[in-house]
């Protein structure tokens, strides 16, 4: 494993250049090379979704993506989405509704939910459940997570409607 590959990418808006082993997964790269420990490795099989991050706006599994594949890509993690304020309303809704317990699945859940809200801002509860079906949570039984996403979507829609009236 002497061979290293240099990869240039953007992580949470910041340019990053690193030399990585070809086998290094994105989640390990984020955690070990960049100390972005919000993304978690849960199953290492692409099943549990704890490592979910955005790559060029699409949700991907950090445990199934190799860091060296990401030349020129833009990776967004829970840390970046938190600092930009992009999911502040969703995080508040999760907090108020206690939509998390141990918190280990939560960053992946938030990233996944934020993609859902962008793609399908009027999703029904069933559609929310279906969209989250790649994200495992052992603690909550999911209902509070669905509640928080649903209420955030409604608030965003109401906010947009209000903004439209103002304009």
């Amino acid at each position: 494993m002497d061979h290293l590959i240099t990869v240039n990418l953007k992580v949470n808006g910041t340019d990053v250049t690193k030399s990585v082993e070809p086998r290094t997964h994105l989640v390990d790269f984020l955690r070990n090379e960049l100390s972005l420990t919000g993304s978690h490795a849960g199953c290492e099989h692409g099943v549990c979704g704890a490592c979910t991050v955005l790559v060029d706006g699409e949700i991907v599994r950090g445990c199934l993506t190799l860091a060296c594949q990401l030349e020129g890509a833009h990776v967004q993690t829970v840390e970046g989405l938190t600092e930009s304020g992009a999911i502040a309303d969703l995080q508040t809704a999760f907090h108020q509704r206690n939509s998390l317990q141990c918190g280990y699945c939560t960053p992946g859940m938030l990233v996944c939910a934020s993609a859902l809200m962008d793609e399908h801002p009027q999703a029904s509860r069933e559609e929310i459940r279906e969209y989250l079906s790649g994200n495992y949570c052992r603690c909550t039984g999911y209902e509070a997570i669905v509640d928080a996403i649903e209420s955030t979507m409604k608030n965003r829609a109401a906010g947009k409607a209000l903004a439209g009236e103002d304009a």
Binding site: L36, T37, G38, E79, L100, G103
Partner: peptide, 9 residues
């Protein structure tokens, strides 16, 4: 829960 939501666990 706030730090867990921010990825700061």
């Amino acid at each position: 829960a706030r730090r867990l939501l921010a990825g700061r666990g």
